[in-house]
Simulated scan of single mutants.
Amino acid sequence: MQNVILKFEQLLNENAIYFPTIDNAVLEVKKPGKWSKKEILGHLVDSAIHNLVRFTEINYLEKPYHHRPYSQIDLVNLNQYQTMDINELVQLWLSLNKQIIRIFKNVNEKALDYKIIMIDQSVIDLKFLMTDYVEHLEYHINQIKS
């Protein structure tokens, strides 16, 4: 998990500085049926909120933990990330993810094997969920940077 945490920290540190330097016109460009770069960052905020709850709850709720999905499109629209100031949006994203890093750094090794039942009834473990979270983060960061 140490490599995952290091990658996570690097993604946050590099992009918390970089994102506010992107011209607002570039951040707000929308194509039909697609999110703007600002909305992608908003989606990462929503992902952080929901995963922070998951990474926390799995430690004290009955096992196996049941993964609850969320409506990504509705949340991006309802939270109006498109109209948010980029500095405020980056700060929100950064703060949430710093808390997730704290959880990652303090997770009990035994907890990494906790089972998670997905909505389709497939089973993953906490280690997979944590690793996948960082990969998801990197994927969307690359979309913002492209």
Rank of each mutant, 00 (worst) to 15 (best):
Q2P: 05
V4K: 05
L11A: 03
L11R: 00
L11N: 08
N15I: 02
I17P: 03
Y18K: 14
P20F: 05
T21Y: 02
T21W: 00
D23T: 07
N24Y: 06
A25S: 13
L27P: 09
L27T: 11
E28T: 13
V29G: 01
P32K: 07
W35T: 03
S36V: 09
K38M: 05
K38G: 04
E39L: 02
G42V: 00
V45Q: 01
A48V: 05
I49A: 08
H50P: 12
L52F: 10
F55G: 02
F55T: 11
E57K: 15
N59L: 12
L61S: 06
E62K: 13
P64R: 00
H67D: 09
H67Y: 15
R68S: 12
P69K: 07
P69E: 09
D74R: 13
V76K: 02
N77A: 12
L78T: 13
T83Y: 09
T83A: 11
L89D: 01
V90K: 10
W93E: 00
N97D: 02
N97G: 04
I101E: 01
R102D: 13
R102Q: 15
I103G: 07
F104G: 06
K105T: 03
K105R: 13
E109M: 09
E109Q: 14
D113I: 09
Y114D: 12
I117E: 11
I119Y: 09
D120Q: 10
D120K: 08
I124M: 05
M130Y: 04
M130P: 04
V134M: 00
H136D: 01
E138R: 01
Y139K: 08
I141Q: 00
I141G: 00
N142Q: 13
Q143K: 11
I144Y: 01
